[in-house]
Amino acid sequence: MINVLFAAKTERWNTYETPLRTAFAEQDLEVDLRTEFPPEDVDYIVYAPNGDLHDFTPFTRCKAVLNLWAGVEDVVGNQTLSQPLARMVDYGLTQGMVEWVTGHTLRHHLGMDQHILGQDGEWRSFVPPLAEDRRVTILGLGTLGLACAKALIGLGFPVTGWSRTAKDIEGITCLNGPDGLREAVSTADVLILLLPNTAATENTVDSQALADMPEGAFIINPGRGPLIDDDALLMALDSGHIAHATLDVFRIEPLPADHPYWSHPRVTVTPHIASETRPSSASRVIAENIRRGQSGEPFLHLVDRGAGY
């Protein structure tokens, strides 16, 4: 019997219990799944960082901690965590991100707000450029960034991608390093942020990056709030240099009611919905990793502690 501890808030247990049991059965895994175990009896931990578990020291036989979320910034620095840590990469999360990013990119590209918000009897003649004439830059070429890039390329957008390490991906102009970042943002008619939240990525979009962007560019951030210097972005929006920012993530969530983003006419706030882990598909990823652990195979989606993701 494999003992699996579900360490997350009660509402997550209510959502995940049945999909997890189904996924374990599909893998022919004999699992005892509970929200409480003696720590020394636990083989795997299914984990959400906003739960009550913060000390991993007592879990002496635990083979892996399996994160329910893509982001691991709230757990990767935990000094008691000696077990392998896997982040969540699943089809549902990726597809949800692709749909959200594609939808908002097309919204800005086509100028939909002029028609959706402008129902005042004025006949507005606006013909957008074709996708081939609207340059998109994606900062972050991990699983989510790459999936979004492929979808946008399929619609005809020229896509530049920037990553901290060098990559060579067919159909994408790949850049890296500080000089590459400056070049990447300088051609971004639409800038999409899908970097992880680390000390190295905080304020990637600062006043210099914003100044380097083309006049009238759009910013879409479904990645992490600290990627953007908020004060610098507000100044760029006020001046009109940045035409609009669609923001799904923030340094403080929920976004405080008095934050200037709420009332700014050039900002769209969405409540961290760009991509949510889907219990059915995420449970299959967790079950597959437990199967791998029991079979002595490498775990999927292991976190690089040094890089922070």
Rank of each mutant, 00 (worst) to 15 (best):
A23L: 04
N14K: 09
F56E: 09
N50L: 12
V65Q: 09
R21G: 11
V4N: 08
R34F: 01
R12H: 15
W69P: 11
R21Y: 08
E36W: 11
E30R: 03
L68N: 06
L53I: 00
P49V: 09
T60W: 06
Y44V: 01
L5T: 05
A70S: 14
L29I: 00
D43M: 04
E73M: 12
T18H: 13
I45H: 05
A25M: 02
R61I: 02
A8F: 00
V4S: 10
A64T: 01
A70M: 11
D43E: 04
P19A: 02
A25G: 07
N14Q: 13
P19W: 02
A48C: 12
A64V: 01
P58V: 01
D43W: 04
Y44H: 06
P38Q: 10
D52G: 11
E73H: 15
E40F: 06
L20E: 11
E36D: 15
R12E: 15
D52M: 12
A7P: 04
A70E: 06
W69C: 14
W69N: 15
R21K: 15
L33P: 05
V31D: 07
L68Q: 11
Y16F: 15
Y47C: 00
V72G: 13
C62A: 13
L20R: 05
Q27A: 14
L68V: 06
A8E: 01
L66M: 06
G51W: 08
A70N: 13
R61N: 07
V4W: 08
W69R: 14
L29G: 08
V65W: 07
V65Y: 10
L29Q: 01
P39H: 01
F6T: 00
Y44G: 05
W69F: 15
A64I: 02
A25W: 00
E30I: 00
K63M: 07
C62D: 09
N14A: 11
Y16P: 07
P38N: 11
H54T: 14
D55H: 02
W69H: 14
D55M: 02
T60G: 12
L53V: 00
